[in-house]
Design a protein around this nucleic acid. Sequence first.
DNA 1: CTGAATCCGCGGAGATACTG
DNA 2: CAGTATCTCCGCGGATTCAG
Lengths: 145, 145
Amino acid sequence: MKKKADTVVYLYHNITFMETSEHDKRKCPSHLSTSECTKQLLPVKDALDILSGKWKLQIILSLTFGKKRFKQIQREIPGLTPKMLSKELKELEVNELASRHVYDTSPVTVEYELTSYGKTLRPLIGELHKWGSKHRKRIIAKSGR
Amino acid sequence: MKKKADTVVYLYHNITFMETSEHDKRKCPSHLSTSECTKQLLPVKDALDILSGKWKLQIILSLTFGKKRFKQIQREIPGLTPKMLSKELKELEVNELASRHVYDTSPVTVEYELTSYGKTLRPLIGELHKWGSKHRKRIIAKSGR
DNA sequence: CTGAATCCGCGGAGATACTG
DNA sequence: CAGTATCTCCGCGGATTCAG
């Protein structure tokens, strides 16, 4: 968890802050002012970071169907290794999209669950789905298959 | 441009097709049926592919402000090399989000422009922006800076 | 100016094995 | 079961150079 690296600070949430003093035009499209950049571009990237990647979406989708245990999720998503699952779940937790509950059984039971905040992603995913469907149809039509 | 690789076909649009015959549970979350997977997951991924990556968003954003020449775009986006810009623009073209016009001057002039189809991304980006902004505020508040 | 070609290094992710 | 540790490999993307 780095603290500072040049003019940009990365937090563990994957959120990029601009150091107001000196970032200027260097990390930002030059047709935007500094504040415009922060306002326009970064939030979109934040949202994208949450959803993109090879597994995130599938994990989120899996959790929308209810509480799941670690192994359960892994079984549902072919090819997903424990290392990756662990990493992704941590990110979801840090961003408060999923919650982790440990039950003191033996061996341990851990359940993951989408938080109510996590469920606010629904409409966004809906929009992605809407546009994606149209796009898919359009492209398939073109390539004539 | 591969044609077939196992049960999945990748086209140059980055669209993933399922071979209906045998993909079954192998490339898909097992809690979804084959058709469900195609219907639910893939379109969202399509949309995500269009927008994610280090440069795509900035390029699209740059083009929303009007026609631009190659070098012009590059100048506006710090750190963007011609190789990457070229690659990204090709993808946008292939997906019909941007169009390329060559003018027979000397040296050559090439202009890029968002297609009207490309502009249909607007609401989607708007949604990403909306959610991303909220998320950003939430996380910043938590980490108390 | 608008790219294409080449080289190369780093980090992300897979495979495998291991621990509490 | 729920992860961690270690190793390895590959490919993205940066830097640089060249061509039309």
